[in-house]
């Protein structure tokens, strides 16, 4: 799995490529914590390159959401595949996160 971080004004973007599982979720956690460290107005997590995620990935994003709330940062997840979306639905977290279909939608919020 690879994680790429970008900054665009007061918006941080983290783009993830590859499976997010117990083997890789820690490096995503490290990047999300780092990106939230500067308390951006918004953090967009682009999941378009993620074909698979397990509950360790979901847990990492829940932790990021909680940290984002403390920092007053809006966390937006975008471009989730149906397969990844289904785990959020099973965990009943699909309504807890702000999830939008694509990057443009995430930027517009």
């Amino acid at each position: 799995m690879e994680v790429r971080a970008e900054q665009s004004g007061s918006v941080s973007i983290v783009a993830v490529e590859g499976d997010v599982d117990l083997n890789s979720s820690r490096s995503l956690q490290t990047q999300l914590r780092e990106s939230l460290g500067s308390a951006p107005d918004k953090l967009i997590v682009d999941l378009s390159g993620v074909p698979y995620m397990d509950s360790s990935g979901v847990a990492t994003l829940v932790e990021a959401m909680q940290l984002a709330r403390k920092k007053d940062t809006k966390l937006v997840l975008c471009a989730m595949s149906d397969k990844v979306q289904s785990i959020f639905e099973i965990a009943r977290l699909d309504k807890v996160f702000t999830i939008v279909p694509d990057r443009a939608g995430a930027e517009a919020i």
Partner: peptide, 11 residues
Amino acid sequence: EVRPGGLGVHI
């Protein structure tokens, strides 16, 4: 309760 972890058995 929204918190990280503990979802595996439910899934």
